[in-house]
Design a protein around this nucleic acid. Structure first.
Lengths: 188, 188
DNA sequence: GACTCTCTGTACCGATCGGTACAATATCCC
DNA sequence: GGGATATTGTACCGATCGGTACAGAGAGTC
């Protein structure tokens, strides 16, 4: 029998990696059973809603991780430089320095976006809001803060795409480094 | 009978839109026949290599478009500001101001990347080389030029992802505008 | 040990997948 | 018009898709 809380989290992690590797459409139940070590019986017992529920929970789990490790620290910080460094470090860790892509970005590009609109939009919306809020506290105007936060998110996503396309994780590391400087620059 | 050159190009355009909308794995032959108006018979007559050949030719076609409309002008330009403005205008046109995603980026994120490594890598490599070459001629160091070109590509890709994720094409337009300024800035 | 209730492996479902075979139909050249 | 060739629609292939049914194994309780 499952130790409910613990095991489910591990299953979600494995599910996340399958969806990351093959996309929502490409992640067949065969691949999923292999990656999780769970047969269809267990899978549909855990997720009666099938593949859609699995993906939804994975996205929610990712959202939870970012809420805890990225957004909340951003909101609560009083030292902007330190908070931004922490965010960059967290992002670097989460994406394995560019070796791991962003599932939310992948879903956003595919046709599964329509099924998970809210999760996808919310992921970026909350991130941008938390970051913009910090930048605003550090002296930027509202619109400048929002624009700069937008730039940060798009840079991270683009760096992940390009790093994977060119199979060069260095692209991601360089982008994060440049981004840090850009976020900390004085208002222009 | 097909007027070979003309019709094939139109078929490739339709194929491109299907792959853009559903990804490589998600683009079923049913969707393809609907989008192209061609039955399986015609499809496999035109592309004996099946789906893989279709995608390969679509990617090659895209590469050709960028070669002609983006890379070559970049290489041949002598006025950097004008050339960069032209590139941005071309990109804005191609991606319908943020309403259309980049198929190469989408393929890069999916598991189909391994099948089309060369096309995906080449698309970005040629772009970066052409842009870096121009920036170098305009006075930047080799490494600065390369880094700045890399930043340009990643910004465009990220803007497309974020614009689609948040369903806000304005993100793409703002990113292109900022990018223009960043590309034209003096060496730092 | 018997009674629950949770969990899981297996067989199976209809639908659809990418791809093939091929006869029928156009279109071309002469 | 006839013969060659290019193109197409349709039927069909085995494999796999996501999902369901259900019997039985496993664990917890008394």
């Amino acid at each position: 029998m499952l130790k409910k809380g613990v095991e489910r989290r591990e299953v979600l992690r494995a599910l996340g990696e399958v969806f990351r590797a093959h996309g929502y459409e490409g992640a067949s139940l065969t691949l999923i059973t292999e990656a999780t070590g769970l047969g269809k019986g267990s899978l549909y017992h855990l997720f009666p809603g099938g593949k859609e529920q699995m993906a939804a929970e994975v996205l929610a789990d990712i959202g939870g991780w970012f809420e805890l490790n990225i957004y909340a620290p951003l909101r609560e910080a009083d030292d902007a430089a330190r908070a931004i460094a922490a965010m960059i470090a967290g992002v670097d860790q989460y994406f394995h320095s560019g070796d791991r892509i962003c599932l939310v970005g992948l879903v956003a590009l595919g046709s599964a976006r329509d099924t998970f609109t809210e999760a996808v939009d919310g992921y970026f919306a909350r991130w941008q809001a938390a970051l913009a809020q910090l930048l605003r506290r550090s002296g930027l105007s509202k619109s400048q803060a929002q624009r700069r936060a937008e730039d940060a998110l798009l840079t991270i996503q683009g760096a992940l795409v390009l790093a994977r396309a060119r199979n060069d994780a260095g692209i991601f590391r360089r982008a994060l480094s440049d981004l840090t400087a850009r976020l900390l620059a004085p208002a222009d």
